[in-house]
């Protein structure tokens, strides 16, 4: 499943990094601790978080995440958005909290 298909199915809002919409999604990782994500996220995973600063994109890029989902309607900081566009990693926004969007994405990818 691609990032684009996930956006359509889960009604997410694309706010940046749209060049990466065709990236293949291999799974997801939900965490707000950056070192936890750095150490444990896998290539192609979507990262679900409430962190909205530029360092999120540095880690997403270094670990080849397929996209970042911001929860609870949070918007990325301007420099995070800029880096998302530079790196071509989609940043998606959902109104749902982390538990609910993680559950929905799990159902979609693995059930």
């Amino acid at each position: 499943m691609t990032v684009k298909e996930i956006i359509e199915t889960l009604q997410l809002t694309l706010v940046g990094g749209g060049q990466g919409m065709d990236k293949e999604v291999t799974g997801a990782y939900t965490s707000d601790l950056l070192s936890d994500v750095m150490g444990n996220i896998n290539e192609g995973n979507v990262w679900i978080t409430l962190q909205t600063h530029k360092n999120v994109m540095a880690i997403a890029s270094l670990r080849d995440a397929s996209a970042v989902i911001l929860v609870k309607g949070l918007q990325p900081d301007a420099d995070m958005l800029e880096k998302a566009n530079d790196e071509g990693i989609p940043v998606l926004v959902t109104e749902l909290p982390a538990f609910e969007i993680s559950g929905k994405l799990y159902q979609l990818l693995f059930k």
Binding site: D32, L33, S35, D36, H53
Partner: peptide, 9 residues
């Protein structure tokens, strides 16, 4: 607050 400093580095 930024999500660093969890003692995992």
């Amino acid at each position: 607050e930024m999500g660093f400093g969890a003692g995992m580095g």
